[in-house]
Simulated assay, not measured.
Amino acid sequence: MTGASSGIGLAIADMLGQEGYALTVAARRPDKLEAAADGLRAKGYTVEHVAGNLGDEDVINGVVAAHEATYGRLDVLVNNAGIGMGEPVDALTTKKVDIQLNTNLRAIFLFYRAAMPMLRAAGAEHKNALVVNTSSISGIRGEAWLGVYSATKHGVVGYTQAMNKELATAGIKSTALCPGFVDTPMTDFVKEHVPAETMITPTDIAEGVRFLLRTSTGCVVPEIRFEQPAGGLEALPG
């Protein structure tokens, strides 16, 4: 799984470890990822970790190859790595546009492609292989100042829907996670407007994924929305 060094990704990795899955975790920063992997191992989980820029095709292929070399099979793929960079449309920075497109969207396409042989094998075996793609509530409704981020997260939802149609007969199911503000370092920029204690927790998201692990072969969940009782993205600075 990607983006696993903190926040939502680490919470999902912890939950998968609890459920008995051996893990390959990936993230950009080696020191932070190694600390997270060591913490997971300390809980008794089997963990491989691979650091690198998850917007890079060679890194993506390397993560999947490392997982296959270590475990030989893949039942659950979690595409969680993502980045949000807010800018008004008048002042979009091309580099920031490209980083968000590569990390939030293009990487998901490439992870599917690289992992497809193992996912197809799992689907053929038990008809319940699972891919989880982290989108956002802004992938459901676009937000001012987060236009590029919103567009990439809309793309995640659309690609998830397309994969469910394309892979339905292969026993591979896909779900897009669409949370509002989650209390992670990624939302520190807005916590003066949206208090952390009012936010969704990473554990909430992980428990949603635990539910997906328990669904029958006849049940596909295209997306899960996690919303706060009130407020939310409308509280962003305009």
Rank of each mutant, 00 (worst) to 15 (best):
residue 143 E to Q: 10
residue 112 Y to C: 12
residue 190 V to L: 06
residue 170 A to R: 13
residue 202 P to R: 06
residue 125 E to F: 00
residue 108 I to P: 08
residue 167 L to N: 02
residue 132 V to H: 00
residue 164 N to E: 10
residue 203 T to Q: 15
residue 147 G to W: 01
residue 150 S to P: 08
residue 109 F to E: 01
residue 149 Y to G: 00
residue 151 A to V: 06
residue 185 P to G: 11
residue 124 A to M: 10
residue 161 Q to C: 03
residue 212 L to Y: 02
residue 174 S to Q: 06
residue 150 S to A: 14
residue 164 N to H: 06
residue 186 M to V: 03
residue 195 P to L: 02
residue 133 N to H: 10
residue 115 A to P: 06
residue 144 A to S: 14
residue 175 T to Y: 05
residue 126 H to L: 11
residue 113 R to C: 03
residue 177 L to C: 14
residue 134 T to R: 09
residue 157 V to T: 06
residue 225 R to E: 10
residue 169 T to N: 02
residue 185 P to M: 01
residue 221 V to H: 04
residue 220 V to G: 00
residue 154 H to E: 05
residue 187 T to C: 05
residue 213 L to R: 12
residue 151 A to N: 05
residue 203 T to P: 09
residue 206 A to D: 05
residue 219 C to M: 15
residue 164 N to R: 08
residue 150 S to G: 07
residue 165 K to I: 01
residue 148 V to S: 06
residue 180 G to M: 15
residue 224 I to V: 12
residue 126 H to E: 11
residue 187 T to Q: 09
residue 118 M to L: 14
residue 159 Y to A: 15
residue 162 A to F: 07
residue 122 A to F: 01
residue 204 D to V: 13
residue 157 V to I: 11
residue 167 L to F: 14
residue 114 A to I: 12
residue 186 M to R: 02
residue 223 E to K: 14
residue 199 M to G: 01
residue 195 P to K: 10
residue 219 C to I: 13
residue 143 E to H: 03
residue 179 P to M: 09
residue 200 I to S: 00
residue 209 V to G: 12
residue 202 P to W: 12
residue 194 V to Q: 12
residue 219 C to K: 04
residue 133 N to V: 13
residue 215 T to H: 04
residue 171 G to V: 07
residue 144 A to W: 04
residue 175 T to M: 05
residue 190 V to E: 02
residue 208 G to D: 06
residue 189 F to E: 02
residue 158 G to K: 05
residue 181 F to S: 08
residue 219 C to S: 07
residue 180 G to K: 08
residue 196 A to G: 15
residue 177 L to E: 13
residue 157 V to Q: 08
residue 117 P to C: 01
residue 116 M to Q: 07
residue 218 G to Q: 15
residue 182 V to N: 01
residue 111 F to M: 11
residue 142 G to H: 05
residue 183 D to A: 08
residue 133 N to D: 12
residue 110 L to V: 09
residue 172 I to A: 03
residue 162 A to M: 11
